[in-house]
C-alpha cells in the first residue's frame, strides 16, 4: 500500500487523483431504496406436495426455494448436485414427469402434484440402473459431481431420441432421429463435465442404447 498514500485520507471529497469514492449497494434492489429502507414482510411458507421417486412428499417451503434445494436441503436427496445454480452446468438435472429439467431453474412451488425422479430413484449401489452400471463399466465419470446429472440426462436423451424429438444436429427434421454418437453428444451438451469424461460417457450411452435397440 506504500505507493498509494492517498488511501489514508478517508473523508469523502478530500480524495486526490487516482482514487474515487464509490458507493455500491450489494444489489440493484437495495440501490433503488434511497431513503428509508423498506423491510419487506418475509414471504409466507407455502404448503406443497409432490411425488419423489415414487413416494409422496409433503413440504412447507419458502416460495424462493428451488426444486433443487427442496430436494437437497429439505428431503436430503443430495444426489442431485448444485454446480452453478444458474442453469449453466446441468449437474442438477432431474426428471419431472419423465422430462429432464435443470432443477435449479425452477421453484419448488411450481411442482405441486408433479412426479419427480432423481438419481436416487433410478438405482441404488446394490441395484444399479443399466445407465449407472454402464457409467461404472466405461468409467464415465471422475470426480463424480456432475455424474448424477449426466446419468439423468442420458436416460432422458435416449427416451427423447426414441420419441423422435428433433435436435440441432438433425439433418432432416422430418426423419426420426437415430441413436447416433452425434445425436447423443449434442443432446448431452447441457451437462458439463469439467473432468472431461465425455468420450467415456458417449461409450456408456452407446452401450445402453444398443441394448435397448
Amino acid at each position: 500500500m506504500a505507493d498509494l498514500p492517498e488511501l489514508d485520507i478517508s473523508r469523502r471529497g478530500m480524495l486526490g487523483g487516482g482514487t474515487a469514492t464509490v458507493v455500491i449497494a450489494a444489489s440493484p434492489v437495495a440501490a433503488a431504496q434511497d431513503k428509508e429502507p423498506m423491510q419487506a414482510d418475509p414471504p409466507a411458507p407455502i404448503p406443497l406436495s409432490f411425488e419423489v421417486n415414487g413416494e409422496k412428499r409433503d413440504l412447507t417451503l419458502d416460495s424462493r426455494t428451488t426444486l433443487l434445494d427442496a430436494l437437497r436441503e429439505h428431503l436430503h436427496l443430495t444426489g442431485t448436485k448444485k454446480g452453478c445454480d444458474h442453469g449453466q452446468c446441468g449437474a442438477c438435472t432431474v426428471l419431472v414427469d419423465g422430462v429432464r429439467i435443470n432443477s435449479c431453474l425452477t421453484l419448488a412451488v411450481m411442482h405441486q402434484g408433479d412426479r419427480i425422479t432423481t438419481i436416487e430413484g433410478l438405482g441404488t449401489p446394490d441395484r444399479l440402473h443399466p445407465m449407472q452400471a454402464a457409467f461404472v463399466q466405461h468409467d464415465g465419470y471422475q470426480c463424480g459431481y456432475c455424474t448424477p446429472g449426466q446419468i439423468c440426462s442420458a436416460v432422458a436423451v435416449l427416451d427423447e431420441i426414441g420419441r423422435g424429438v428433433p435436435s440441432y444436429v438433425a439433418a432432416d427434421l422430418t426423419e426420426r432421429p437415430r441413436m447416433t454418437d452425434i445425436e447423443m453428444r449434442e443432446r448431452m451438451s447441457g451437462n458439463i463435465c469439467r473432468c472431461g469424461a465425455y468420450s467415456n460417457i458417449a461409450e456408456a450411452m452407446a452401450q445402453v442404447a444398443g441394448e435397448r435397440a
Binding site: 437437497r72 436427496l77 444426489g79 448444485k82 436416487e120 444399479l128
Partner: peptide, 20 residues
C-alpha cells in the same frame, strides 16, 4: 472399475455440503 463407482453413480457419495 472404481470401487467408489456405485456410490458416485447413484448420488450416495457425500460431498462437503451434504453431511446431513
Amino acid at each position: 472399475d472404481r470401487i467408489d463407482g456405485p456410490l458416485k453413480t447413484t448420488g450416495t457419495a457425500p460431498y462437503a455440503y451434504e453431511h446431513h
